[in-house]
């Protein structure tokens, strides 16, 4: 396993991500598998900050800094443009944050998924508008503190995977940096599929989650092992596969490590646990339907 890792620096050092940035880890892991025959699209977000200021860039593949809400149609335009020119050897990768996916870019992503344009869309979900200084998004989990939910987010996190599944696109999967091999296997799998592929990639954000700079991978693992963020994939909107049997740790193990949840009371934690348990049962049920 280890020797198969290609040390391709497609996310070059010297970028401006915060120390311990989970998003940078995620982009690095994704680009490593995508390889140099890739055109990437990024949108205004931390990806822009990471991309660097002219004339230097951290991106080792041709990359286009598009507008906020159009990562998907931009990538689709590139994919179709390349297809017209017979460049089937180049894959098109769209990176967008949770704001650019769950909120402002949801419509355009939906449009592309409906057309099944041949792109790999990676949503780098750090669960709030971090680049603009931590404002609530519809990917922000229940009760989480942000600068625009100072009392805690009153609403639950949007289930983007179900929204994607409802498009019957060929492949959607959750992944997170704490399971790099799972993530890279999913990218590899997605590369082999034509059509709109979607990766919901949870990337802890030390700055916005109010956590130390050294525990992003650990938080990512805890999110999975507490079932807050199960690892699974959905094919053609029908076939659900759970990729990792979680240890089912109590949600506290995840929540209480983060400053954004430090104000949570017992009842709120119980509620999060109930929500998590309910979602897990639903997911298991869906996974059981196709054997």
């Amino acid at each position: 396993m280890a020797s198969s890792v290609q040390e391709l620096n497609l996310l070059r050092p010297g970028h401006a991500a915060c120390a311990g940035c989970g998003l940078a880890i995620g982009m690095k892991l994704v680009l490593e598998v995508m390889g140099p025959r890739t055109v990437a699209v990024i949108v205004p977000s931390c990806e822009g900050a990471i991309g660097g200021v002219y004339p230097n860039t951290s991106y080792g593949v041709p990359t286009f800094h598009s507008a906020f809400e159009i990562a998907a149609p931009t990538a689709a335009g590139i994919a179709n443009g390349l297809k017209i020119q017979g460049r089937d050897d180049i894959q098109v990768l769209a990176f967008a944050g949770d704001g650019g996916t769950f909120d402002i870019g949801l419509q355009s992503l939906s449009g592309v998924a409906k057309n099944n344009d041949d792109i790999l869309y990676v949503c780098l979900d750090n669960e709030a508008y971090m680049n603009t200084g931590i404002q609530v998004s519809s990917a922000t989990p229940s009760y989480a503190w942000t600068n625009t939910t100072p009392e805690g987010n009153p609403r639950r996190k949007k289930n983007i995977m179900e929204i994607m599944a409802a498009h019957y696109n060929p492949y959607s999967a959750t992944a997170t940096i704490g399971y790099p091999r799972d993530l890279q296997q999913k990218i590899t799998k997605a590369k082999g599929i034509r059509g709109t592929k979607f990766i919901h990639l949870l990337v802890p954000c030390p700055t916005g989650w109010r956590t130390p700079s050294d525990i992003s991978p650990e938080l990512s693992i805890l999110a999975v092992e507490t079932n807050v963020f199960p690892l699974y994939e959905v094919e053609e909107g029908r076939k659900y596969t759970i990729n990792h049997e979680p240890r089912r740790l109590p949600v506290q193990a995840y929540l209480l490590k983060q400053g954004r949840f430090k104000h949570l009371g017992e009842e709120q934690i119980r509620q999060v646990q109930r929500d998590v348990d309910e979602e897990w049962e639903k997911l298991k049920h869906r996974a059981s339907l196709q054997g």
Binding site: R12, P13, G14, H15, A16, G51, G52, Y54, P55, N56, T57, S58
Partner: peptide, 10 residues
């Protein structure tokens, strides 16, 4: 941008 951010000593 064709240069590399590697020139920036972060």
């Amino acid at each position: 941008s064709y240069g590399s951010t590697a020139v920036i000593e972060t």
